[in-house]
Amino acid sequence: MVQNASIVPPWRLTGDADGRWPLLLASPHSGRHYPPSLLAGSRLALMQLRRAEDAFVDALLDGIAGVPVISAGYARCWLDLNRAAEELDPAMFDGPLAVPVTVSERVQAGLGVIPRLAGHGLEINARLLPAAAAAERLAAVHKPWHDRLSGILAAARHQHGTALLIDCHSMPSPAGPRPPQIVLGDCHGRSARPDIMAAIEDHFRRYGWRVARNSPYAGGHTTRRHGQPASGIHAVQIEIDRALYLDPHRLVLHAGAARVRAAMTALVQRLLTDWPRLSAPAGFAEAAE
């Protein structure tokens, strides 16, 4: 699990990323590399740190062939790719930061781009981090990741006129009676056209799963940054109830993972088949009225 940080790639990319497909799937929170400096400076054991992962979401995408799939290499506790680069907590560092800072609600909750808290609200670091660490992590992983997403999506749009990013996550089982098992986020209609959301929702409902839109998760930094329907690029965040595929206590896959994996593969196949209709400009204009 712990490797030499100098040789650990920031992501794993499979499939054809040259624009031949209109889709891109991303898993920003399934990274399992915990740099030695993180482990040495943390007050938590590795299993406690891993509670912050969207564990094995990347494995749910393994059956997808051809279409590009990009999965994070580094653990979310080290750097959260679904936060804006400036979402930093200056109080976590031993000196002034040389990068822009925005203390958002997520930062105040301990969940900035360099998180203060892991799962169950546990403090990650035993001491202040070096001030230089913020700029180093952002330059080494965060910027290249989002630049790569932008490049793949731009190539797809160039070839197809439109493109779709599906940002894949997992969530703890929501509370309440008959809670959703799948939550789709399009930033309340701002990051993807309605027909795309309707097709994805219908797909998961056909599997018998309860589906909600934008509550409790409406989409994070990735969806907001890359989803620009007016420019031909759409983005949808998918949150999958971990209980559907994972033992959340031991963080191991169970038999349900095969069904979720099949559902994700079938979703890609359906979107590819329907993409000429789903991405038609006239349809978007009608749906927006």
Rank of each mutant, 00 (worst) to 15 (best):
76 R>M: 03
77 C>V: 02
78 W>E: 15
78 W>G: 05
80 D>E: 11
80 D>K: 08
82 N>R: 02
82 N>S: 06
82 N>I: 01
86 E>P: 04
87 E>N: 03
88 L>A: 08
90 P>W: 04
92 M>N: 10
93 F>E: 11
98 A>Y: 07
98 A>C: 11
98 A>N: 15
98 A>Q: 15
100 P>V: 01
101 V>A: 08
102 T>V: 04
105 E>N: 11
106 R>T: 07
106 R>W: 05
107 V>L: 06
109 A>F: 01
111 L>R: 13
112 G>S: 09
115 P>I: 01
115 P>D: 09
116 R>M: 07
118 A>S: 14
121 G>C: 02
121 G>A: 03
127 R>I: 02
128 L>Y: 10
130 P>H: 05
131 A>F: 04
133 A>Q: 14
134 A>L: 02
134 A>N: 09
134 A>D: 08
135 A>H: 07
136 E>S: 06
137 R>N: 07
137 R>D: 06
138 L>I: 14
139 A>E: 14
139 A>N: 13
140 A>M: 11
141 V>Q: 11
142 H>W: 12
143 K>W: 08
143 K>E: 12
143 K>H: 14
144 P>Q: 12
144 P>S: 12
145 W>Y: 15
147 D>Y: 12
147 D>H: 15
148 R>H: 15
148 R>V: 09
148 R>Y: 11
149 L>R: 13
152 I>K: 12
155 A>T: 11
158 H>K: 13
158 H>W: 03
160 H>D: 12
161 G>F: 03
161 G>H: 07
162 T>P: 02
162 T>E: 12
164 L>I: 11
164 L>F: 13
165 L>H: 11
165 L>M: 10
165 L>I: 08
167 D>C: 01
168 C>K: 02
168 C>T: 09
169 H>R: 04
170 S>A: 04
170 S>L: 00
171 M>W: 00
172 P>G: 01
172 P>S: 01
172 P>A: 00
173 S>Y: 00
174 P>S: 02
178 R>L: 00
